[in-house]
Design a protein around this nucleic acid. Sequence first.
DNA 1: GGGGCGCTTTGATCGAAATCAACCGTGCAA
DNA 2: TTGCACGGTTGATTTCGATCAAAGCGCCCC
Lengths: 246, 246
Amino acid sequence: MTTSASSRDHCSRRGDLAAPCSVCGAKEFNICQPLDPARQASLYARAVRLHWARREPVFAAGQPARHVYNLTEGMVALSRSLADGRRQIFGFLLPGDFIGLEAGDAYGCDAETLSDAKACRFDRATFDAFLRDNPDVALGLVRAASSDLAQARQHELLLGRKTAVERVASFLLDLRNRAGERHLRTQPLSLPMTRSEIADYTGLTIETVSRIFGRLKSQGTIDLADATAVRVLDEARLKRLSEGAD
Amino acid sequence: MTTSASSRDHCSRRGDLAAPCSVCGAKEFNICQPLDPARQASLYARAVRLHWARREPVFAAGQPARHVYNLTEGMVALSRSLADGRRQIFGFLLPGDFIGLEAGDAYGCDAETLSDAKACRFDRATFDAFLRDNPDVALGLVRAASSDLAQARQHELLLGRKTAVERVASFLLDLRNRAGERHLRTQPLSLPMTRSEIADYTGLTIETVSRIFGRLKSQGTIDLADATAVRVLDEARLKRLSEGAD
DNA sequence: GGGGCGCTTTGATCGAAATCAACCGTGCAA
DNA sequence: TTGCACGGTTGATTTCGATCAAAGCGCCCC
């Protein structure tokens, strides 16, 4: 199995999710609440709600890709490591995002929770059949896949050509924008990831990330109540820094 | 128009292509030769064969994405630049690859030829309609898109976490494998791209790329007849170098 | 032939970020 | 309460690749 030992199906906790499952429409964690019961019956009947604690694997690179997930709460990191342990994080997934959608026979990267997280899980075969019957949903997924590629290329530009300051500023702005889009904007922005995960995303070391946070703080560009609570004080400046000005 | 001034429709030169167009099946540059005339009539009737000289733009980031291309001969680079000119090349396209497939309303990157190149061009609307009628082709494209994403992530790992030697070794092996897959393997491997383009792909400078080529040559790992003709002498060693051993 | 241009190579030096090394604060378990 | 593990910050030093500089080599055009 790809989900960790402590993940539970149909967990007994209840409550609103950060985002309803975009496939089966579930709005609460343990209740099936599809938008269109007739069409989606075969799919949601088999959908399973899962939740994980912080720092648990959802799946690992190379495992057979038997499931597709729709994240409804929490944050998940996609990454891949070299044999000697050097790790590159590709991105941080937010509620509403799909996990494992692009996989062929096997998952191409590791997926790990960065916080408590919840997701709807679908069997790949069931999911594919559902897409065949629902071209509108399928079209939406094609768009989502294109946007993943666009994001990956943006990230390639960051890793290949930006300085350390530009990388960290870009990371902060990007996270802020994506959180804002999904109405998850909190003030201050709370970061579930550690300095080590930010370093592995930006292609830097934890020391460099820490120093740059310090510099941004002393400049007055951001405020740090603690290491995880970032308040952007000067967005325009942060934007300039992310593009190589200053 | 996105194609350059010197591109010509239905060019009068003839001859076998490196790869037949994977959509309309054209095997020669100026002759429509579809695999299944009945089904594909609406598409191939409007397909246009183009060719470009070296270093010509196919399209630029931000332009309205009106066309989809299938490269049949030559090589094209996808890239994106920062305001100050720093450029990141995302990949090198070979015959058989699609160009501009993942674009939404506008192209997300610059596409430029690295050599003389030929392609079949389709109107996006026509192409989309064709895909709706040919789900098998559409499925193939979904797989192609997934593999683009996998490749982009491999490249993120290269840019974020590999050393200069590892990057150049990975670049050479990757190009070699992809050329081999498509029966374009030449011995020695001939590189249509300059040191500057290799640098922009690997996130290095031309001087560093040149020095590493020199080092690989003096080690006996590769042989360089001239700057563009690379013969891999010790593939196993190159593989080890690309992964951090040695 | 010669001169200039674009690309590559090679050498010397510099600098941004990595590495090495303490040290701090917090939370947790003995 | 102590001790320790973990994450974060900060300082000293090193290093890898960038930058600066110069020269070599086709290649094309005059």
